[in-house]
């Protein structure tokens, strides 16, 4: 953290003609790294036990990734703007409990309503975060650490030790997690849509590029006339809403929801985002990289079980992977800085 000034993010790339291409290539290698790691892991595990590639196993892996990937999408957007949202685990909890209570009280409600309610609960939570960060001028780390406690506390006082059991929930809500369209489970489909939409938004749309610019240099973004306030609120609302959606998916998948649902998820989500190549100083990385990070973390877990390695190693491996990922980012940043300096020297 001592030297931060020399890092160059892709958003401030268009300095000269050849730069974007080269930077693009370098970035591609960053996400390619995760793909390679994933391929290597899957290949090694599959050789050891071919059933790892069976339909059921792949399905399980994807189902387990879905919730994490949805949350990682929102987190990636927030981290790209050089902020962080630690409250996502608590937002998942409050949304899961709200939706489960609603569905057990009104079993006739369609699934779409459940999803909308989850999104709305999350969006409100995210809006509060965003307003405090932008207008209260409180750093995102402090705000979301505070709301991590507040939202969790609200859920606990609301639940008061009770929980919603699977037998109180309507059938169509519970089967939603396992139902599939064209052989793809709804849960996975929703995750793919969220990740895809998020990636396109961040890559191809004006607002997405503005979010990168804000992360690269908040002051410059403000001076350049970017509507920083609107975009920042949007990023937090998106992260909150997606955590709310994840709450609905959680309730549908696990059936039993208590006030502790999603406790500690924030660290998994941040881990997925960091492993996926989104730098914590903002301005670089991609949504689909974060989703790949989520997939990699999940596959590691199931691969350990298949390889008959002590399950207790999982967390340690995840930790080592996070550190490896930041080291890789650092290396890429240093290399970009050097290449830019060299080019500038010639001009």
């Amino acid at each position: 953290m001592t030297v931060t000034s020399d890092r160059s993010a892709p958003a401030d790339a268009p300095l000269g003609a050849p730069a974007p291409k080269r930077l693009g290539n370098l970035l591609k290698t960053r996400e390619l790294g995760i793909v390679l790691a994933l391929a290597l892991l899957v290949a090694y595990t599959a050789i050891d036990n071919p059933r790892f590639l069976s339909g059921q196993s792949i399905r399980d892996n994807l189902l387990n990734t879905a919730i994490l990937a949805v949350m990682a999408t929102g987190q990636a957007v927030v981290v790209i703007t050089r902020n962080i949202d630690l409250s996502v685990g608590s937002v998942l909890g409050i949304s899961a409990f709200a939706v489960a209570t609603l569905m057990s009280d009104h079993p006739g409600l369609p699934m779409a309503v459940a999803i909308l309610v989850g999104l709305a609960v999350g969006a409100v939570a995210g809006l509060i975060n965003g307003v405090l960060v932008r207008y209260g001028k409180v750093p995102a780390l402090v705000v979301t650490l505070g709301t991590l406690y507040i939202y969790r506390g609200i859920t606990y006082s609301w639940a008061g030790g009770s929980q919603v059991n699977a037998d109180e929930l309507p059938r169509h809500f519970l089967t939603f997690a396992n139902d599939s369209l064209l052989g793809i489970p709804w849960l996975v489909l929703i995750a793919v849509i969220v990740v895809g939409a998020g990636s396109v938004l961040m890559r191809n749309y004006r607002v997405g590029r503005e979010l990168y610019a804000m992360g690269s240099s908040p002051a410059a973004a403000e001076l350049a006339g970017i509507k920083v306030a609107r975009n920042l609120l949007g990023a937090f609302v998106l992260s909150g809403a997606l955590a709310g959606l994840a709450g609905v998916l959680y309730a549908a998948r696990f059936g039993t929801v208590d006030a502790a649902a999603g406790t500690g998820y924030e660290l998994n989500v941040v881990a997925a985002v960091v492993v996926g190549g989104v730098a914590v100083f903002g301005g670089s990385g991609s949504v689909w990289g974060a989703a790949l990070g989520a997939l990699l973390l999940t596959v590691i877990g199931s691969a350990l079980a298949v390889l008959d390695i002590n399950q207790f190693w999982q967390q340690a491996i995840v930790g080592a992977l996070i550190i490896l990922a930041i080291c890789a980012d650092r290396l890429v940043a240093v290399r970009i800085a050097r290449s830019l300096r060299k080019r500038d020297a010639h001009v």
């Binding site: 960091v274 995840v318 080592a320 996070i322 550190i323 930041i326 080291c327």
Partner: peptide, 15 residues
């Protein structure tokens, strides 16, 4: 290595 402390200690938290 000059890595950001927030990310490093989240990593070692898990490790």
């Amino acid at each position: 290595l000059g890595l950001p402390s927030l990310a490093v200690t989240i990593g070692t938290l898990a490790l």
